[in-house]
């Protein structure tokens, strides 16, 4: 997956000012940045939620312009948003069933006793697990996650990161947007740092750590 000179506007405000970045298949890519840096906009642009005013989004070597969000999802893209990632009026089983009827992702056994509960009645962390499980069940070729650890216990976050590396090892592309780089993600292939809608750094996590020191 690759972005070339992508610009995104929200009304009069330009959120991305010509972003170029590449996320290799089979590895985990981390987009780092503060609030307002544009990392969520990058994910939403790739998923087709917002349309770029200029530039190209390439996936599997093809330009994705004009492809609706649901067509991208059917083609194997999944986005787990940072907030409200579940259908609150549907049960947990129905939420998961939208991706794969009758199955629950084994990485989240915590969800098994909650299958008949309405997702809107769960805690924030449980809702996040439902959103992640639904995305993983779709077996996406490109998985985009916006701060997936938000609301989860540290042990669950570590388990999630392990799982994401396993997903990437199957040849799939995994992209996470985070505010900071946790130790469990240091094995990521690429880190892109966004600042005020521009790429400020692209490289290996070790290079970034060297710069910070």
């Amino acid at each position: 997956m690759e972005l070339r000179g992508v610009r995104v506007r929200y009304g009069l405000l330009e959120a991305l000012h010509g972003v170029d970045l590449a996320c290799p298949a089979g590895r985990v890519t981390v987009l780092l940045g503060r609030n307002g840096s544009g990392r969520t906009t990058v994910l939403r642009t790739v998923a087709g939620v917002v349309r770029p005013s200029a530039g190209q989004v390439l996936w599997q070597g093809r330009e994705t312009a004009g492809l609706d969000a649901y067509r991208r999802a059917r083609a194997g893209l999944a986005l787990v948003p940072a907030e409200r990632g579940v259908f609150g009026s549907l049960t947990v089983a129905e939420n998961l069933g939208l991706s794969e009827p009758g199955t629950v992702e084994p990485s989240f056994p915590e969800l098994l006793p909650l299958l008949t509960r309405r997702a809107g009645t769960l805690s924030g962390g449980q809702q996040q697990m439902v959103a992640l499980a639904r995305a993983l069940l779709a077996r996406p070729r490109l998985l985009l996650l916006d701060e997936p650890g938000r609301g989860l216990a540290p042990a669950v976050v570590a388990r999630l990161h392990e799982l994401l590396f396993r997903v990437a090892a199957e040849g799939r592309t995994v992209v996470l947007a985070e505010q900071g780089l946790p130790p469990t993600l240091e094995a990521a292939a690429v880190v892109h740092v966004l600042r005020r809608g521009r790429i400020a750094f692209s490289g290996e996590p070790s290079e970034l750590r060297g710069l910070v020191r």
Partner: peptide, 24 residues
């Protein structure tokens, strides 16, 4: 039915339903 669940998903959160591959 699967259609019924998709229909309720669209009413609940249209944008999220599209991200889940539903033609809202």
């Amino acid at each position: 039915t699967r259609f019924g669940v998709r229909l309720r998903a669209v009413v609940d959160n249209r944008a999220l339903a599209q991200l889940a591959g539903v033609d809202a």
